[in-house]
Design a protein around this nucleic acid. Structure first.
Lengths: 227, 227
DNA sequence: CTTGACACCGAACAACTGTTCTTGTATACT
DNA sequence: AGTATACAAGAACAGTTGTTCGGTGTCAAG
């Protein structure tokens, strides 16, 4: 390919683009490049950008404002913004609060990924409280007093992991065939399933495997009593 | 400030910007947003972008094409789906786990300051869950099933604030003169005090002010159901 | 009923922006 | 000298883009 060295102009164009993206989060325009590198004509900038594209250092989208992009190869040297994001391996997770859990309705998990942006719609929890992966978690607010046998109150927040299987001893959210959703401890027992309420004074129920549908595994129950 | 939730439009605008930046390496234009979110008028997009800016979710550079930028706060939520992490230490509190709360014993809060340093003996919680000061908090693990009328189970963790006074509606840990410790909602009612169980099916009890001693205010109840 | 806020629409404007065309200079090769 | 190539400048054009402004409908407060 073209193994010619970059001209001084092309070098400074590259470093300017790099710095500009890091600063502003968007590529510069041709004229911005021109004034920065001291080129009076847009066509010259355009010319050099074409050259740089031929050298594989950047990509261009035709007829689009700011339609240029550093090649991934170059991008690695830049990334100050993005790496700062990923390197923050911290112990706080934002769990999206996807809706409510009500006795008579199934849990609907629409996974609106953008709902996370809503301040009200996310719960921050320390990862030390949540074993395992943290990216398939979601939270639901409990409505009503139908879960008191699960020791869960109106207004409580349950953090669950999306999981359709369940192992013995797990606390799961199940949708029963009588159209109720409850939280129970799950046990295989012969050819039946024992659903044990968290409240030790209450009796378990036994159901056929076909009658229950596991909606998710309860990882954590939160109750804020002060606001 | 503006604590209103985001409208559906604003949510999808946010998610579109996020996806667009990830795809193209540059922010979208107002019209691109409009056609993606099905808004015919550029002014409406502009209107909503201004709203989002007021909520602190993005920044805008005036008179600049593609002059918008997601706030760093949001940027962190982007990386993987929900593994959004914030400054970790800034938003995390280590609450010392000072002991157990048992029905027949008073809570002793010796504030062993060295206990905080013990890894096993602290609970990490996001500050967003705990309003107010965070330095007078402590945690207790519940032993036994004597608090089921307070919807608190064996093994649950209660995070409390040291506070000998209580206002109406607070959930408090009280030591009664019959040598039992319970968690109840606290209400002054005439010259008596009404202690209301969290479980709505249970009846309140009325006691004289001299018979109760408020040990602390319950801020948060945590229950880990998976380990 | 009126008022005002809020959310929205459509249209028009001015500025911005990528593209293209013409011209010019310097260097290398024939 | 003639020619091809790389590099550069300026101007003009058309499409893009942020901004603004008048107007509409809704909804709750007065």
């Amino acid at each position: 390919m073209s193994e010619k060295p970059l001209s001084d102009r092309q070098k400074s164009i590259m470093s300017y683009i790099q710095a500009y993206v890091a600063d502003h989060g968007r590529p510069p325009t041709i004229r911005e490049i021109g004034s920065a590198v001291d080129i009076s004509s847009t066509s010259v900038v355009n010319y050099n950008l074409t050259k740089l594209k031929e050298k594989g250092l950047l990509e261009r989208d035709a007829d689009v404002s700011r339609g240029l992009r550093l090649t991934s190869q170059v991008g690695k040297a830049v990334g100050s913004v993005q790496t700062a994001v990923t390197e923050a391996i911290a112990n706080l997770v934002r769990v999206p609060l996807l809706g409510h859990i009500v006795a008579g309705e199934p849990i609907e998990v629409g996974h609106d990924s953008f709902a996370v942006y809503d301040e009200e719609d996310a719960i921050e929890v320390s990862t030390t409280m949540l074993p395992g992966r943290t990216d398939d978690l979601f939270a639901l607010r409990v409505s009503g007093y139908s879960m008191i046998d699960a020791m869960v109150n109106d207004g409580d927040i349950v953090i669950m992991r999306q999981d359709n299987s369940a192992r013995n001893g797990d606390m799961v959210a199940v949708w029963l065939s009588d159209d109720t959703t409850t939280l129970k401890y799950f046990f295989h027992e012969g050819d039946k399933i024992r659903l044990q309420p968290a409240n030790p004074t209450m009796e378990p129920i036994y159901v056929d495997p076909g009658e229950v549908q596991v909606q998710g595994k309860v990882m954590l129950v939160l109750r804020q009593t002060a606001h």
